[in-house]
Structure formats: structure tokens, C-alpha cells
């Protein structure tokens, strides 16, 4: 199982999370998003970038409520609320956004 980016093959697991976190690139994010039927907007990117920064700093992908709380603080309540986040990522902001951000599945997500 793999994504293809500009002729390169990037392996992923059965749920679509990439195996080697270092394989991630912006182009790959677009490819993963497309396979999730998401058109990346600035708001999507803001969330994805936030997740990558969070992971870089704490070595974990945050749980949904932690993500939403932090996004609210960083980007304001228009983006940082449950409803809007689920509009951006219909299959779960943490789960789907983490996949696009090239991070492991959040701890506690089954």
C-alpha cells in the first residue's frame, strides 16, 4: 500500500497513515488529502501545520479536544470549534488531519 508523489512511492499502513514520518512533504499532503476527498484550503493547512508543530514539540499527536482548544487559542474561535473542524475534516479532525500531516494516529484513537 502506497501513495505516489511525483513518481516517488511512499508506503502507508492499512488505514493510510504513512510508515516513515520523514517521507512527508507538502505535495504528499495534497495526495493524501485527495485520497480522503479533501480539497486543501488555507484553513486545512493551518490545522495540518499546527499538528506538525505540536508533534515536533511534544512527540505526540494531540487528542481532538486538545487540538481544538489549542487551535482556538492560536487561530481564534471561528476555526477552533468542534463544528468547523468537522466541516474541514469530516472523518474526525484529529484522525484525518494527522493522516494528512504525516503523523501517527493520535494516542487513544481506535
Amino acid at each position: 500500500m502506497a501513495y505516489e508523489v511525483n513518481g516517488n512511492i511512499v508506503e502507508h499502513d492499512e488505514e493510510g497513515y504513512i510508515i516513515n514520518l520523514s517521507d512527508w512533504s507538502k505535495e504528499l499532503a495534497e495526495v493524501i488529502a485527495k485520497s480522503e476527498e479533501i480539497e486543501m484550503t488555507d484553513e486545512h493547512w493551518a490545522v495540518v501545520n499546527f499538528l506538525r508543530d505540536y508533534y515536533e514539540e511534544y512527540q505526540i499527536a494531540p487528542a481532538v479536544r486538545v487540538l481544538i482548544k489549542a487551535i482556538k487559542k492560536e487561530l481564534g474561535p471561528e476555526v477552533g470549534n468542534n463544528k468547523y473542524m468537522y466541516e474541514l475534516f469530516p472523518y474526525g479532525p484529529a484522525k484525518q488531519a494527522c493522516k494528512i500531516a504525516g503523523l501517527p494516529k493520535p494516542t487513544g484513537c481506535v
Partner: peptide, 9 residues
């Protein structure tokens, strides 16, 4: 570094 995230939780 993950211990530093505990406050968020």
C-alpha cells in the same frame, strides 16, 4: 517531551 503536553490534557 510528551510530559510537557500533560498540561494541555
Amino acid at each position: 517531551p510528551t510530559y510537557r503536553a500533560l498540561g494541555d490534557y
